[in-house]
Design a protein around this nucleic acid. Structure first.
Lengths: 339, 339
DNA sequence: CTGTTAGCGCGTTCAT
DNA sequence: ATGAACGCGCTAACAG
């Protein structure tokens, strides 16, 4: 039993193909009676509507939105922040009958999908920089999140200010402070940054966070040497544990450790507790993001709560609206029990 | 500047459209020389290859695989188990140059994508049962995971046996035991199951887990009344907290609580610790799944570790291979520190 | 309100 | 090894 085509159906019902097509796509083009009559006949013979592949070609519209993630799906999908973002995106897409295609930021090219997708949401600078260029050269709508692309609308939070504020809340004059950073330099492993050349220092949000920390440190009269700034290549527990061990074994130990994500901060917290270090008495810790797990774990983490769900929703709305206006989203400092 | 079509390019290069097409798709159809010559010319004039939308229609192949999740994306994407599964799927898809479309299990229909997608991976019984029927009626390959569809290959673990084993490890004769279950009955809120009609008792994996628990309980000579079996509508912290409070406030309190997921078990653990209950001295807890967070939180949760990454990878491989052979994956009992 | 027709952009036979 | 021609299944414009 071959799949029915619109033409087959038209022949069977003794009307023209256009009428069938209109019955499905343009109700105003035929009488309500005829329409329901046709639709019912179709249901009976098992025709569920025009072939989507053909529609995509013909209309140039697929109702598919590509979400370009910063890195391989493999990695991104385990990141709770990214997931919460996806959650927001998918909520709005569903309301608008759009579908979600996940696209890896370490792909070679976007040509695999650019021809049929309706638009792109780009979450973080793609690991493969060429994608940014390609995205900007093609004509479909693009919304960027947590980074910027020339002439394309963007959604951000003020990472510098947020980091400044959480650091200010944690720091006391005379503190020894360390920083556990994320993707600050181009290294595949956990390490101190020393004098390594910075990675995307202009555009990356983690460098904005570093700027904020540094401003707070300076204001508090604290200096942090580059061997007390760690770099993690990814926001994953494995790297966090490595960095946590290194920093906790420093002697003298820091009084405060500023972490660029909650995942990092939580691993650090567990390591510290296991070593019998009193939090926050002997060591204060701050995170970043405000993930659910941080709210589930005691003591509650001091962190910057950004609503990734909101971010995702706004990104999707922005894309679908076709507007070209960038926006900055609010955040909230949560003092928690770790500072 | 309009987008170049294959026809444009053929005209510009003074060859036929077939030759351009062959240069991209069928290297054996023309000389290597001519081929590289054409490919380079294309690169120069900015033609990146045949339009994908047209290719999809013509070839009936899109390189897109739909992952049908059990529920709305909105919800699924926050579930760590589902995410780990997606991770596995995406790893294999990437190796095979396929792309991933996430599809919600509470959608009305699959007609939006069935015409152009290459196949379906179905992770858990879709909340909208009609999708199962539709999936089975269409002709593209389908692989099911954690549930079964007639004549389609499936991937499972032995939930009954795993649950039996973890329960056996936790239970002592004379225990008072409670169960925090997942989707056992059709209720939108946290509640005890009492005599409510069971939901999908035949096919659902959570009922298999219940079966396993019950077998272990019976063997140990323990009875559990239906007012000590809770039902959570979703695997989310919110519901888990509600159930945790109810069960911990029971008097007398249970000695063991068997939880059908780690998320539930972890929330319960936090509640119990907050109430000053000694774990495992006064209360033993078991989880299910073996999520990362459970390995990050002290005391370590006793749980059933199933490798969701493996599951995802196997599902994707199975789909791409076209095989029709179902498989059962191994699991591992982790005793942890909570029993 | 209905039917006819010309593509959307391409892949593939078939003949050369 | 190459080019002409047909059709994948549909929609939009137009004519009636």
């Amino acid at each position: 039993m071959k799949k029915l085509t619109l033409k087959d159906v038209a022949k069977q019902l003794g009307v023209s193909t256009a009428t069938i097509s209109n019955a499905f796509n343009r109700p105003d083009q035929l009488s309500a009676n005829k329409r329901t009559e046709i639709l019912e006949a179709c249901k009976e013979i098992g025709y569920t509507g025009p072939n989507r592949a053909a529609q995509i070609l013909r209309k140039g519209q697929s109702n598919i939105v590509a979400l370009v993630l910063a890195d391989s799906l493999d990695y991104m999908v385990t990141d709770p922040v990214a997931n919460t973002f996806i959650q927001g995106v998918s909520r709005v897409l569903r309301e608008n009958q759009k579908h979600l295609l996940l696209y890896a930021g370490d792909s070679d090219t976007i040509t695999d999908v650019v021809d049929f997708v309706d638009g792109f949401i780009c979450y973080g600078a793609p690991r493969n920089g060429a994608l940014s260029t390609q995205l900007n050269q093609q004509s479909k709508p693009v919304v960027t999140v947590d980074f910027n692309l020339e002439n394309r609308p963007a959604i951000n939070i003020d990472n510098e200010k947020a980091s400044y504020e959480i650091a200010k809340a944690a720091l006391r004059p005379g503190d020894r402070a360390a920083i556990l950073g994320l993707r600050l330099i181009d290294s595949p492993s956990t390490c101190r940054i020393y004098d390594s050349p910075l990675l995307d220092a202009e555009s990356s949000i983690t460098h904005r966070r570093l700027d904020g920390y540094c401003r707070a440190l300076k204001e508090t009269g604290i200096e942090v040497a580059t061997d007390w700034i760690w770099n993690l290549p990814e926001n994953a527990g494995m790297y966090a544990v490595q960095a946590a061990r290194e920093v906790l074994q420093s002697s003298p130990r820091p009084d405060v450790i500023l972490c660029m994500s909650d995942i990092i901060a939580l691993e650090l917290l567990q390591c510290a507790l296991t070593m019998g270090i009193d939090i926050p008495g002997e060591l204060r810790i701050t995170g970043f993001d405000g993930i659910e797990e941080a709210a589930r774990t005691r003591p509650y983490m001091a962190t910057v709560c950004q609503s990734s769900v909101e971010k995702g929703m706004e990104a999707a709305k922005l894309l679908l609206s076709g507007d070209n206006t960038s926006m900055s989203l609010p955040y909230e400092i949560k003092l928690g029990e770790t500072i």
